[in-house]
Design a protein around this nucleic acid. Structure first.
Lengths: 238, 238
DNA sequence: CGCTGAGTTGAAAAGATTCAAATTCAGTGG
DNA sequence: CCACTGAATTTGAATCTTTTCAACTCAGCG
């Protein structure tokens, strides 16, 4: 793929690995279990863009936005870190994304040298990291085409669907979504303005697909319709 | 990052690694040098979406489009494979992207079992693959925000800039770009329609930034202006 | 009880898509 | 070698979507 080898000022990845599943990442879990805890308040950063990568983190509780700043004050949110997620991984020496807490957040911090040691001691861990990061790439691609070629309503539906599936995977209610992030964060994630996000949520409510009691609590009332918005690439669902 | 752990039908990554640089991937090069050659014609596939991952490929000459199909016949082009690029890598058993030749293309084919053997014999190789894929992820993120929050003219400038840098990195003329792909391919890559791509190229020509003698040959006449279009919103942290 | 920041909503403007037509280009067969 | 055919490209005009700018509501908090 040409893009990476061209990118001269390519942005630094922090590489976000998912939380190890049941049969993966035992070593990581083991190391992390003994790692130190750190608490950060809303608005504080786990790490800043450009900061040296000293630790990798596992989110114990709370939520973070992973973003890159643009020159003109705008920013691109690349993802969110929720409890169970690993953040801050990557091959480079510095983070090129920042991780800012959206609510009070607790992190486990594993020093990078220790991670490297673990990898050296256990080559299988490298393969796991590789798998995890290739998942991450797959996800980035998934998000890419769900954003680049779709309308606002489809993007928002995609976003809600992902959160719903995440709940499901964790045994939480897939029909009730708690949003720790603002409309602006969602917009920066989906490539929309905050007004469009708000309007689109209102539109989904008008269609009866969702229910918005509080602005940060979304009830999904018609999961099928949402899924169709995401899956059907161009059949309008009115 | 939540997205990956949610994605239920997450798309399969083929993981696209870049061509090994001067000091990287010697083992890969070594193995590939003895790998078998395969030629494919325009429109043929190196591998189809969903096909089992039997080989990884190095593009010797030619060009391919790496894409995923959408339900309704549209597709998302995730990248292009040019000579020197490695394609088809990834942790999963099947490709979830297809790789279709844009012009007559020659590939080196390295069987996956052999790659695994090489990794086992040389743990350092795994680290290199990890680095390479984290670069790939960084690139995907780069592309992501260059597409999701920008106008057509900025997207096209970004595209041309990348190709220009690629030429530069390879000792080719950074001011002359040969496009092996159609306007539709570019559009599918940038999240635009082919008409918009065409119009935007015409606009860049009208501004005097580029020169289009033939539709597949672009001369960059004002590299600074193009760079400003790209950088206007994204200020790199380095 | 007024502030402040987040969210919602409206209206005008900008930008991209869609549909349609014209033009260029490449490859084929005469 | 040239005309023909189909594909790729360009361009135009109408339409649709999203953004922008602005006003307004609401909840939390000093």
């Amino acid at each position: 793929m040409f893009s990476q080898s061209l990118a001269p000022n390519t942005t630094q990845p922090a590489v976000y690995l998912r939380a190890p599943g049941a049969d993966r990442g035992e070593e990581l879990d083991h190391g992390l279990a003994r790692a130190s805890l750190r608490k950060i308040a809303v608005g504080e950063h786990a790490f800043l863009e450009g900061a040296p990568r000293s630790y990798i983190f596992k989110v114990e509780s709370g939520a973070l936005a992973l973003y890159r700043s643009l020159g003109d004050g705008r920013r691109q949110v690349l993802g969110f870190g929720f409890d169970g997620d690993l953040i801050g991984l990557g091959a480079r020496k510095c983070h090129l994304v920042g991780a800012q807490a959206l609510k009070p957040t607790t992190l486990r911090c594993l020093p990078v040298p220790q991670l490297k040691q673990m990898i050296n001691a256990n080559p299988g861990l490298a393969a796991r990291l590789y798998e995890a990061i290739s998942e991450e790439l797959a996800d980035a691609q998934d998000r890419f085409f769900n954003v680049s070629q779709r309308r606002a309503i489809e993007r928002v539906a995609f976003f809600l669907q992902k959160l719903s599936h995440r709940n499901e995977a964790r045994g939480a209610d897939p029909r009730v979504i708690l949003l720790p992030m603002s409309r602006a964060d969602i917009g920066d994630y989906l490539g929309l303005t905050l007004e469009t996000v708000s309007r689109t949520l209102s539109e989904l409510r008008a269609k009866g697909y969702i229910c918005l009691k509080e602005s940060r609590v979304v009830q999904l009332r018609n999961l099928n319709a949402l899924n169709e918005l995401v899956d059907s690439a161009s059949d309008d669902v009115e």
